[in-house]
Amino acid sequence: MDFTQDYFSLFDLPRRQAIDALDLERRYQDMQAQVHPDKHAHLGELDRRRAMQWASRVNEAYLTLKSPGKRAEYLLRLQGHDPEIECNTAMPSDFLMAQMELREAVAEARAGGDADGLDRLHRRMKREIAGQHAELAAALDERRDDARAAGIVRALMFQEKLLHEIDEALDAVGA
């Protein structure tokens, strides 16, 4: 076991998009129970430093595998397919139109202090994102369609950002 090992092997899991979240959490906690700095606090400087580095890596691995979008992006990179998150912003025009309309609805609800409207938008986005997650697993594990999966990963970036904006709007209207 070493620092160059990928996150799936770190948790002794197969490289798959579909994952049992509870099982992952248990593996994560078992691992932290061994490497966490609290388990080494009574030891010397070097030991504590090593524990901190290991625990940081285990946290990073868990964060990546826990989130379906991050997991898919990571899996794509492992399979040698760069999802081009930063540079490829060419999205289907109907998707972009829908995003723009949603964004306008959020701005409108925010300006009007419409907490219920924002709440509805919040739930709608959550539903859409959950649908994308299911689609990701199908594309990666069953159809082996990396290009399609990369497209969903990029779309998710937009959708998660919008969800974040809705949450900020909810904060702003004090709901």
Binding site: M1, F11, D30, Q34, G44, L46, R50, A51
Partner: peptide
Amino acid sequence: NKGTAEFAARRMNQSVQRAL
């Protein structure tokens, strides 16, 4: 401390394996 650093690393690996 320095002389046992490698030993500690091996023990850490072993303990992580045990977790699994």
